[in-house]
């Protein structure tokens, strides 16, 4: 037979623990009310787009354009999903030229860029965009299902918790861009 009053913590210690824990709860609750701004800001800076931004930077090294100006421009067409992730690219030197990131609001402006990231907000007018950029020597990059099949050149996809990409090499050739075999080796190749 066992002693009925066999509890492992005496009542006084339990009571003291309760006071300590409730004080801790109040303290942490205070801290929690102080941090929501910081927490939400951090969550908005998405790692997915930090990776995609770094890919855009790398694409410049592995794609040859027929001609360059003094700068290399990456344009964002449509709603910008990158948040602050593209900011570190601005002003970097790549291929001996200064990199400029800008938002564009028309396909005409997009024609002045070397790379144009077409946001998924432009999904409904992809064909119109591709037609307008066909002869403009612009590397079109998207993240919309069917982007590369539909005539875009590079499309980001998510695969096994990693950002991967599809390339439509035929669309690149039509545009007059030369994509290195190293980049093609990593890509999933698609056709129009």
């Amino acid at each position: 037979m066992r002693n009925a009053n066999r509890h492992l913590l005496p009542a006084r210690i339990l009571a003291a623990l309760k006071v300590v824990c409730l004080s801790a709860l109040l303290g942490v609750a205070y801290i929690c009310f102080q941090v929501p701004h910081q927490a939400s800001a951090q969550s908005l800076s998405s790692r997915e787009y930090e990776i995609k931004a770094a890919y855009l930077y790398n694409f410049i090294k592995y794609v040859d354009w027929p001609s360059y100006g003094d700068t290399i421009s990456i344009g964002i067409l449509g709603n910008d999903p990158f948040g602050a992730a593209l900011a570190p690219l601005n002003g970097k030197i790549v291929k001996g030229r200064r990199l400029v990131i800008k938002h564009v609001d028309s396909v005409r402006d997009a024609q002045q860029c070397q790379i144009i990231f077409v946001s998924s907000s432009e999904k409904q007018r992809l064909q119109e965009i591709f037609e307008s950029l066909r002869s403009a020597r612009v590397l079109t990059v998207g993240e919309t299902q069917g982007f590369a099949d539909g005539g875009g050149i590079i499309n980001f996809i998510e695969e096994n918790n990693k950002v991967r990409f599809e390339i439509n090499a035929e669309a690149a050739r039509r545009t007059g861009l030369n994509i290195s075999s190293e980049l093609l080796k990593l890509a999933r190749l698609v056709k129009s």
């Binding site: 800076s45 930090e50 931004a53 890919y55 790398n58 602050a84 992730a85 690219l89």
Partner: peptide
């Protein structure tokens, strides 16, 4: 807004 520059990473 905190962000990480991953451009130093290879392809």
């Amino acid at each position: 807004e905190a962000t990480h520059d991953l451009t130093g990473l290879s392809l």
